Amino acid sequence: MSELLIMPLPGNEDLAERLARNLSAEMAPLEYRRFPDGESYLRLHADPTGKTVVAVATLNAPDDKIPAVLFAADLARDLGASRVGLVAPYLAYMRQDQRFSPGEALTSRTFAQWISAHFDWLMTVDPHLHRYASLDELYTLKGEVVAAAPALARWVAEEVDDPVLIGPDGESEQWVREVAALQDLPWRVFTKKRYGDRDVRMHLPDLTGLQQHTPVLIDDIISSGTTMARATRHLVENGFRPPLAVGVHGLFADGARDSMLEAGISRIVCTNTVDTPESVIDLSRDLASRLRDL
């Protein structure tokens, strides 16, 4: 394996340093700023000749970030890097995978083409795949997916007394089921039923015998927080103690935290795929382990 250089894009320094320590790898500081006209300036303060450069850039709010990510990849290659990979713990543009109305852009495919053209491989955490079975349907580079479930399971086992894991909707079931299996914990999932075009209701799962457990709501993405808030209200109204909310990716749209806390959630916790105050579950060890395999 060629020598590794860990190159953090702006805002990713903490995770990059954790990866470098786990891998005993050298950091490659990237100087980035904008000219007065808004264009980007980049300078790499390391020699990448013959080395594998690992760009670290989580891609929430991607429209502000993607030019610098692509420029950095080309810069490393132009300066002699043998390979350039991307660690993007949160991978954006997975939503628009079908035309629901005529003329809509399939941005998931376009975005995948950009990344595939500039990098040799991509590593991400639990991408939000809907109609795609895997990253290979979109990306032409080598794609590696790291599961957050082991880290979530470790955190729940260490931090929560007598947990019962609950999925706020059907899409969350895969994460809830996997985390529960790793620690042999009870789990349930809310169901939704449609009674009309605009009348969709959540139904509490059968929690008989689990009333004394601490509810832990688990989902992959916390964005608006609406589903988590609704599930919380159902639990509290049915006599359960205030639940914890645990997410893989904490995106937090405006007002999301307030709506979740107002609903009765006792604590919100996420992994550090996105840097937020709630990002207390560190995935650097899991990412580093897979990077060694690459």
Rank of each mutant, 00 (worst) to 15 (best):
A16D: 00
E17G: 06
A20W: 00
R21K: 14
A25R: 04
E26D: 14
A28E: 03
A28I: 08
P29G: 09
E31Q: 14
Y32S: 13
R34F: 08
P36I: 12
G38D: 05
E39L: 09
E39H: 11
S40L: 13
S40A: 15
Y41H: 15
L44R: 02
T52I: 10
T52Q: 05
N60Y: 12
A61G: 07
P67V: 15
V69N: 05
V69W: 04
F71W: 14
L75F: 07
R77T: 11
L79W: 07
S82E: 13
R83W: 06
V84Y: 00
Y90F: 15
L91M: 09
A92W: 01
Y93K: 03
Y93W: 06
R95V: 12
Q96H: 10
F100M: 11
G103A: 06
G103C: 06
G103V: 07
E104W: 04
A105S: 07
A105P: 05
S108W: 01
S108K: 00
R109H: 10
T110Q: 09
A112K: 03
W114F: 15
I115S: 00
A117Y: 10
W121Y: 12
M123V: 14
V125W: 02
V125E: 00
D126W: 00
H128M: 06
Y132F: 14
S134P: 06
D136Q: 10
Y139Q: 05
L141E: 02
K142N: 15
V145K: 01
A148E: 06
A149L: 04
A149G: 04
